[in-house]
Simulated assay, not measured.
Amino acid sequence: MQTLIIAEDSSNKRIDKVLKEKYPNMPQNFMYKAFRKKDVKVNGIRVKEDYIANLGDKVEVYIIDEILEGKSISEPTDYFKAFTVIYEDKNLLIVNKKQGIPVHPDKDQAENTLIDLVTAYIREKEVTSKTSGFSPALCHRLDRNTGGLIIIAKNNEALKVMLEKIKNKEVKKYYQCLVRGKMEKPQGILKAYLEKDERKSRVYINDYKTRNSLEIITKYKTLSIIDNITADDSASLLEVELVTGRTHQIRAHMSYIGHPIVGDGKYGDNTLNRTLKAKYQALWAYKLKFEFSKGGGILNYLNGKEFKVMPDFSNILPIRNI
């Protein structure tokens, strides 16, 4: 922890700018995380990054000296090694998340998550309001090892509207995935029931309803067939639309019908995965469509828009050119 007194050349500036000037080697994602954790105090009171410093203010920064000085810490992940920006305006951000990046802190990773890096990126550009104090928020989630499109709200009203639209299925989400074998039908609608086991962090699929299960509906169509993915197997590249959006739904549902996703270590075929040296599951959230039926409030300008990216399945060695 360090303490500083605001001098005349730092007064009337935002406190985050003061800290940037005082500690130029400190990674910014650490600084903004300190604000979120309320680890910056002025005159004994916790403040947000938009606080305007006054002459004589006593600032206490509860960050270890090594981080403040940029010493003895691993380099922060470069933003664009974790995500690329697909769309951005004053209300929201749509990014294409790389595989292997968790969207928020979990038991395996507390730093350099997607929301940490996106927050640092937005703060650095000073896109958000200087007075709202709103921290960028995820509108939905993706598994760590699933790549693809994520919507992040920059203000409370945008978050409220987007959560409502997602809940009402007015934001259509489409995925591409590579599954083992050839589908029995080129397209179809799959229905089953999913039960979640929190302790094991996995789900189970059945054709019948149980007390704790929820119905799942998964639409798919075959985009292409890859013959001889190994000496014994072919594979199918599918477009999948989630009608219901349950935990691990696509991965578990495809496995249940005998066509597990290539590279999926939890629900997939590990013999096939080892043969292909697949590092991540071949699953990508590749398209979003905004179809607002009753207007979209401050986001109404998005109605009818579509955003799409190309999936990156390059970690699956034999099929780099899909």
Rank of each mutant, 00 (worst) to 15 (best):
G188Q: 06
V85W: 06
E124T: 15
N270M: 11
D197C: 11
K97H: 06
G245E: 04
S255A: 12
K90F: 11
D50T: 11
F83N: 03
G100I: 05
K20Q: 13
L117I: 11
A278E: 04
N212P: 01
T3K: 13
I166C: 08
P24E: 12
N54L: 13
R180E: 06
L19C: 05
K294V: 10
L138P: 05
I316P: 02
K287I: 11
I226A: 05
G148P: 03
E306C: 11
L68H: 00
I257H: 07
V40A: 03
V309I: 15
T84E: 01
P311F: 09
D264G: 08
S129T: 07
N168Q: 12
Y62D: 15
I225T: 09
Q99W: 02
K196E: 10
K173H: 05
K196M: 07
T146C: 07
G295C: 02
Q249D: 03
R180C: 06
K125H: 14
K287H: 11
Q187S: 14
P102H: 05
K165H: 01
N321I: 10
G295D: 04
M26V: 10
G296W: 11
L317V: 09
L242P: 01
K17N: 14
K58R: 12
T146E: 00
I122F: 04
C177E: 00
N145S: 08
E241D: 10
K289F: 08
I63A: 06
V47G: 07
K107Q: 14
L4K: 00
R199C: 09
A120C: 08
S314Y: 09
R199P: 01
Q99S: 06
D197W: 03
L272K: 04
E184R: 08
K154L: 15
Y23P: 03
D39E: 05
L163P: 05
E88L: 12
E157N: 12
Y208K: 13
V127W: 08
K107V: 15
A192W: 07
K98D: 06
K90S: 13
G295R: 00
Y23A: 08
R274E: 15
V59H: 03
K22F: 06
E49P: 02
I216N: 02
G148M: 08
Y87V: 00
Q2M: 14
E88Q: 13
Y301M: 10
S255T: 07
E8F: 09
R180P: 02
K107F: 14
S255M: 07
N303E: 00
V262E: 04
N273S: 13
M31E: 03
G148W: 00
K200H: 10
L4Q: 02
G44A: 12
A192K: 08
E291K: 13
E75G: 04
L114A: 09
D116R: 05
G56W: 01
G188N: 07
N145Q: 08
T210W: 01
N315F: 14
I5K: 13
P24Q: 12
V171Y: 02
E75V: 14
N25V: 10
